[in-house]
Amino acid sequence: MTDFRPEIAEFKQFSAPYIKDDTSVSKIMTHLLVGLMPSLVLSGIIFGGKALMLTAFCILTSMLWERLFCLITKKKSTIDDLSAAVTGMIFAFMLPANFSFWRAAIGTFIAVIVFKQLFGGLGRNIFNPAVASRLVCWYLFRSNFLYPEPDVNSADIESIGEISLLSGVDTYGDMFLGRVCGGLGEVSVIALLTGAFYLLSMRVISLYEPIAFLGTVFCFSAVAGKDGVYQILAGGTVLAAFFLCSDYVTTPSTTLGKIIFGILAGSLTCVFRFFFRMPYEGMLIAILICNVLTLVIDDLALAITPMGNSADDSRKKSNEKQTR
């Protein structure tokens, strides 16, 4: 094998540290994809092959849009960071299983191009692209959001073809397993928790936001006289808690900020669900509002816990001046 290494030492100046952790954005996104896998498998069992095909279609189209955008704007291709795949997968999880493909393609277009790339690409987007696009699709194709009956149905309870939040009759066990109507990936709580456990153990997501979010939903529901556990199990609340609220880019990065974000998103979700009667889109609007407030929340958290005890330092400095 020919070795093209130089024969004479070419020392270069580097800045410390000279070694870096073996992590990257694409690895984090791969972890997220793996974390979403259990839900995909269960959606295939619950809703059949069409759910799998819709998810695959959403992933492929989002990556295609990303590639096309990079080609047109002559940017370096960012397709290999896999964020488009994650966006497409989460977007698909919030769709009914019999959603038409061309509408799904429009949805991923809105997610990847409008809500991510036009903001400046991954890292600069203000809104969670999947959530924003799902909300836009809800208003565009409202009549098409007909949630199908799950193939695997509970024998003893007759399903009435309505999402759990509206009907309010599904049992805890059915919702936990996912034998209810709803978005193809968000119905099965057990699968989502399995994926979330994987992500937590790989240190990709933190527990602060999910716990704050779910806890707030539970407490708010209890105070408002609703069934807290039902509110958590129904309507993709778990998907939102573990995969939407713990998205890196669109949520605060301080620990305190994460908790504030979770509490705010949880209470807004409940407000929209209980008082504005928006079972389908209330949670999404709540998350988007909190996405906008992310910077404010982070600044607030920083103001509460200042860097390096600056108050003490200024006192020390004034002491030094006095001694001089």
Binding site: V25, G121, G123, R124, Y248, V249, S253
Partner: peptide, 8 residues
């Protein structure tokens, strides 16, 4: 080098 993804 890619954009900061604000992972913290």
């Amino acid at each position: 080098t890619t954009n900061c993804i604000k992972c913290g």
